[in-house]
């Protein structure tokens, strides 16, 4: 396949960026999108130019490093996968593909397609944990957890923190991420003591970072590589209301 790629190039956080067009030949349909970029970079390096910077780590859809907006969709077309699991067979010979970084004020571009997502780390530090005294691990079955609670907590815990929800949202809202993190702890007995403090602090940090508000468009759910449900956002809304009005 022969593809025309329009890729966002930006030297660093303080330089203005712009699109550069590359023509890539010999694209094999079984390549992942990132492998295709690797091949492109090899050609760019051979020409003595700077390769396109993008993030990746596991390349099997579980680490949340890759962060490309492909043809206007975070992680590209198709449901329930990260950019690294997008295969070139989804494109046709002769296609023009636009590749941009995630765009949000709290996710500044560091270089080309790499954005700084440490805002998510600060949200986690604000409440995405449980406080326990460490020591010998207690017997696992001393606290019974209903099966459906376990399942739901695991559904929320599947979030890999990639930030596609922010990238897809018209408001650059981080609600799906925060809701998933609030819920996976809030659904389990161990998360109860800090449940309301957690939601209040994490939402406060989310707002402080400059993410927008949720307007229930559900775009986040559509692009989430782990298909986290917006049901968790409703759950966050419930917990937040209770935290603000009833648990001063």
């Amino acid at each position: 396949m022969r593809l025309t790629l329009r890729i966002w190039r930006q030297k660093d956080a303080n330089s203005p960026g712009g699109f550069v067009t590359y023509v890539k030949d010999h694209v094999v349909p079984d390549m992942s999108f990132l492998e295709m970029l690797d091949a492109l970079n090899r050609e760019i390096v051979e020409r003595g130019e700077e390769p396109v910077a993008f993030e990746s780590d596991c390349r099997e859809g579980i680490c949340g490093s890759c962060s490309l907006v492909i043809n206007g969709i975070p992680h590209g077309p198709g449901r329930g996968k990260a950019s690294c699991q997008l295969y070139m067979r989804h494109f046709r010979d002769g296609d023009t593909i636009t590749v941009e970084p995630f765009r949000a004020k709290p996710f500044p571009v560091l270089r080309d397609l790499i954005v700084d997502r440490s805002a998510f780390d600060r949200i986690m530090q604000a409440g995405g944990f449980i406080s326990v005294n460490t020591g010998g691990a207690p017997e696992a079955n001393t606290i019974p957890v209903p099966k459906q609670d376990q399942e739901m907590a695991m559904d929320a815990a599947a979030c890999i923190g990639c930030g596609a929800c922010v990238a897809a949202c018209k408001n650059a809202s981080a609600m799906l991420f925060v809701a998933a993190k609030v819920s996976h702890l809030g659904l389990l007995p161990q998360g109860q003591p800090e449940r309301y403090r957690r939601v209040r602090n994490m939402v406060a940090q989310m707002d402080q970072e400059g993410f927008g508000g949720c307007t229930n468009t559900f775009e986040c759910e559509a692009v989430c590589p782990k298909q986290i449900s917006v049901r968790f956002i409703a759950r966050l809304n419930r917990d937040y209301f209770r935290a603000t009005l009833l648990e001063p």
Binding site: F19, K170, S173, G213, T217, E219, A222
Partner: peptide, 21 residues
């Protein structure tokens, strides 16, 4: 909320293809 939402994305996408919005 509109002020906050607009401030949250100062640089718009060149191409934005909403899937369900």
């Amino acid at each position: 909320i509109t002020q906050l939402n607009r401030a949250a994305r100062p640089t718009p996408y060149e191409l934005w293809s909403p899937q369900v919005t």
